[in-house]
Write a protein that binds this DNA or RNA. Structure first.
Length: 503
RNA sequence: GCCCCCAUCGUCUAGAGGCCUAGGACACCUCCUUUUCACGGAGGCGACAGGGGUUCGAAUCCCCUUGGGGGUACCA
């Protein structure tokens, strides 16, 4: 190992396998106030990758303490999304709201040890305080006014019938530091934390109100024996506060890793307002879990030299470490996601692709009877279409002329009306073998040559016209294969008949 | 406002003082392939934000500027 001078800033080692001691236990802690967001999912990916790389556990905790906004259907959506992505978790998810007694006990402990106290300031007083600070161009912060109330002062507030929040003391002089797995040494001044923080909502002064985020996270992470907290960099300030709580509660803090954020096209934190951001939305748009998870991994992490950019979760887990996690935010790019999804689709086995397309086709009433219901025919169609798919849904659009008779577009109509087109198609029609029989590629080519010479047109004219007749378009998949797929049902004959005669 | 973080092609990134004439991927352009479109293949375009240091040597280390982002709740 290279020896570095102390002045050299911390750089995470290339591999953390040596730096990680004991068992790795990480968690994802989504709050069910919305569907599974891509930012949360990417955090899940990093947690999962880290856990699997170290043979540790990836746990789930549903942070539903905001009763106003939490909804059970969101929990379902989050769990389903993670499952679909292949991010399997260990054990049953912890439901945070069920742990409220543990949270209250911790607050009671902080009250008893003098780390926390009751603050009787009401809404109006706090608002006035902040407005004054704003007016003086100072940072808004709680001025710790009730930190050391005398028994007389406290008694007076009580006599007024005031309720109280519970605040945790944050010394202005405190200096909080930690070694961040992606950012190196982090340092935060207690005076920049906004004053003593509220850890329990307002309640009658003889009670402990609803415990708040920073407190419950620390209590739960400690109880779950979380070894590494991996979350977005928007949590950095929370980490400083939480570290203070760990110390006051007598718990050993975990190791922290703050990952870069996913940004929108404008370079701002991706939010719901940016359109499609829910995993379930990507799913219904036809993106594959494989491509999506691959893309999310690439947003902020880079694979080692020689690995390439296409990989499975397992392959990434084998080499994942925070030394290769970038520090700057990453813009979301549809082009790259689309490319990745196309790559996945192109490489799909025709039978697998058929299984995925079947329900989509069925929704259009396709493929349930007749020659088009044959599995083998469908597989051939899938093999034909696969290389041109970007989204799964493209397999519906592009299969359309195989299941239904297409309406010729303007270019196709023009082609059919051009010199030699109809005679050539008529000649081909006359040579067409019986329906119901397979047509070999060689046979098809021979027929094409024969018909073209009989009609006295170039083969290219016939090819182009045949495409117009069969697909109603001048563009599409391989012509001979298309024709062969349309032949057994006699569909080629019908389309040639209607195209070779003047309407 | 204050605090913190960040800064390489349009985008995602490689880069750990000499392997850099800065590499890869997406996008874009050209060509090949395909009697079409896509796929595939081969090329091309394209970046170290600026300024100071340190050093024989800086994309890399330090400082300043600029720009961008995050945070600043009785949400999580």
């Amino acid at each position: 190992m290279r020896v570095r001078a102390p002045s050299v800033p911390f750089r995470p080692p290339r591999s953390f396998s040596m730096a990680v001691t004991g068992s790795v236990r990480v968690r994802l802690a989504p709050s069910p106030t919305g569907t599974l967001h891509i930012g949360t999912a990417r955090t899940a990916v990093f947690n999962w990758l880290f856990a699997r790389h170290h043979g540790g556990s990836f746990l789930l905790r549903i942070e539903d303490t905001d009763r106003e906004r939490s909804r059970p259907e969101y929990t379902d959506n989050i769990l389903e999304g993670l499952h679909w992505l292949g991010l399997d978790w260990d054990g049953e998810p912890v439901i945070q709201s069920e742990r409220i007694e543990a949270h209250r006990a911790a607050i009671a402990q902080l009250l008893a040890s003098g780390h926390a106290y009751r603050c009787y300031a009401n809404e109006a007083e706090l608002t006035a305080m902040r407005e004054l600070q704003q007016a003086q161009n100072r940072a808004p912060r709680y001025d710790n006014r009730h930190r050391d109330l005398s028994p007389e002062q406290e008694g007076a507030f009580l006599a007024e019938g005031r309720e109280a929040v519970i605040r945790f003391r944050i010394d202005d002089g405190a200096v909080i530091t930690w070694q961040d797995l992606v950012r190196g040494e982090m340092r935060w001044a207690g005076s920049d934390l906004g004053g003593d923080m509220v850890i329990a909502r307002r309640a009658p002064a003889d009670q402990i109100g609803d415990p708040l985020y920073n407190l419950v996270v620390v209590v739960d992470d400690a109880a779950m024996a979380i070894s590494h907290v991996i979350r977005g960099e928007d949590h950095i300030a929370n980490t400083a506060k939480q570290l203070l709580l760990y110390a006051a509660l007598g718990h050993t803090p975990p190791v922290f890793a703050h990952t870069p954020l996913i940004l929108n096209q404008e370079g701002k934190k991706l939010s719901k307002r940016d359109g499609v951001t829910s995993i379930s939305d990507f799913q219904s748009m036809g993106y594959s879990a494989e491509a999506l998870v691959n893309y999310m991994t690439l947003l902020g992490w880079s694979p080692p030299e020689g690995m390439g950019e296409r990989f499975s979760l397992e392959q990434a887990a084998a080499v994942f470490d925070f030394g290769r996690v970038n520090r700057a935010g990453a813009r979301f790019d549809w082009d790259k996601l689309n490319w990745l999804n196309g790559q996945v689709l192109h490489g799909l086995d025709p039978e697998i692709l058929r299984q995925q397309l079947l329900p989509l086709w069925a929704a259009r009433g396709w493929g349930s009877d007749g020659p088009c219901a044959e599995a083998d025919w469908q597989r051939q169609l899938c093999a034909l279409l696969a290389p041109s798919l970007t989204l799964l849904a493209d397999g519906v659009e592009q299969a359309l002329p195989f299941f239904t008779r297409p309406e010729p577009d303007a270019a196709a109509l023009a082609q059919l009306a051009s010199d030699g087109a109809r005679p050539a198609l008529a000649a081909l029609l006359a040579l067409l073998p019986e329906d119901g029989e397979a047509l070999s590629a060689e046979q098809a080519q021979a027929l094409l040559g024969q018909a073209a010479s009989q009609a006295g047109v170039k083969k290219g004219v016939l090819m182009k016209s045949l495409r117009a007749a069969l697909l109603g378009s001048l563009q599409g998949p391989d012509l001979v294969t298309t024709w062969r797929l349309l032949h057994p049902s006699g569909e080629d004959r019908l389309r040639l008949q209607s195209s070779s005669t003047v309407p």
